[in-house]
């Protein structure tokens, strides 16, 4: 499912969300002009709070949401935390402009493999698990505007490291992506107007979104159980009043059975267990043990008791 065929990312993401094929994407930017191409392409609408006050500008569509957090460490950390606390993102992208000490042309997309929090003096290493065609390098985040010559790192900005450290508190590292777009080389920072920034970000969004959806699609995979199977498993869990651990064990047994015998047999066995009446907790335990044993037996991998 390549976006090159249809660059309408909004429709793409909405269709696939309905089929539960790709998870919810969250985007965090510092400035509104950095967010515009993503808001447009992902067909997002501004969220208006019922109380009339939102600490950060937020946008949402059926498959994505976005937060404009503002510049600097406090805004980056507070904005990301506020956004992620809403639990509306399974993957998170921090995108924005950065300065470059490398001889890279304006508009180049950068995927930092080292993030330096210059305020705290600590370094974090993002997971570099995905194949890409962007430029890699080290990026340092400063709490103030700097000139390129002031730091020895390849790239510099005011948010990425602060954002990444905050995001790590909420999401697994492999689902947090930081991408920066070269806007200047320190000395020429004054020449970056709103209009120029919008143009740079527009071009970058065209490269970033298809890549991002492709890796999200590739690394999400098929759900373990189809809708009917999931409903049946939930019904068995409720009927047998299974504990959390028992539920996980049943899922594993059901998944093994499904892989080896197909879905029909699994559905038949689960159906047999949704209307059983129970008189005691012990009875539930006996039924659960019998059910998981039966499911494992059918995998052909059931251990031979010695």
């Amino acid at each position: 499912m390549h976006l090159e065929k249809s660059l309408d990312a909004g429709i793409f993401i909405a269709q696939n969300r309905v089929n539960h094929q790709i998870p919810m994407l969250g985007v965090v930017t510092a400035l509104h002009c950095e967010a515009v191409p993503f808001i447009d392409r992902l067909k997002m609408k501004k969220i208006i709070s019922q109380t009339g006050h939102m600490p950060f500008d937020m946008y949402k569509s059926s498959g994505a949401s976005l937060c404009v957090c503002g510049t600097g460490p406090v805004n980056a950390a507070a904005g990301s935390a506020f956004f992620l606390a809403q639990k509306n993102s399974e993957w998170l992208l921090n995108v924005g402009m950065c300065g470059s000490n490398k001889n890279l042309s304006v508009g180049s997309v950068v995927y930092p493999n080292v993030l330096v929090d210059s305020a705290a003096g600590c370094t974090v290493y993002p997971e570099m698990l995905y194949k890409h065609e962007f430029t890699e390098g080290s990026l340092a985040s400063f709490p103030r505007v700097i000139n390129g010559g002031e730091c020895s790192f390849d790239f510099f900005d005011m948010e990425a490291a602060f954002f990444y450290q905050t995001a790590l508190k909420f999401l697994a590292p492999e689902k947090i992506i930081v991408l920066k777009i070269v806007s200047d080389h320190g000395a020429d920072a004054g020449g970056v107007t709103k209009k120029k920034a919008a143009g740079i970000m527009e071009n970058a969004a065209q490269k970033i979104l298809p890549w991002l959806f492709e890796i999200m699609n590739e690394h999400t995979g098929e759900p373990l159980f189809a809708r009917e199977e999931k409903l049946l498993l939930d019904a068995v869990n409720a009927n047998l009043k299974l504990s959390f651990c028992q539920q996980k064990m049943l899922e594993r047994a059901a998944s093994a059975c499904k892989n080896n015998n197909g879905t029909d047999l699994l559905i038949k066995i689960l159906n047999e267990n949704i209307n059983v009446s129970l008189k005691s907790k012990n009875e539930s335990k006996i039924l659960f043990n019998g059910l998981t044993k039966r499911l494992f037996d059918l995998t052909g991998d059931e251990p031979c008791k010695t």
């Binding site: 493999n113 080292v114 370094t123 974090v124 290493y125 997971e127 570099m128 698990l129 890699e136 080290s138 790590l168 697994a172 590292p173 492999e174 690394h219």
Partner: peptide, 24 residues
Amino acid sequence: RIILVKHYKDVFNKPGQNFTAQKN
């Protein structure tokens, strides 16, 4: 790509790593 680190544990012992994803 080569990345310099101060100590190997800065990378190896990071919190929240996904063993399966890294194995790939």
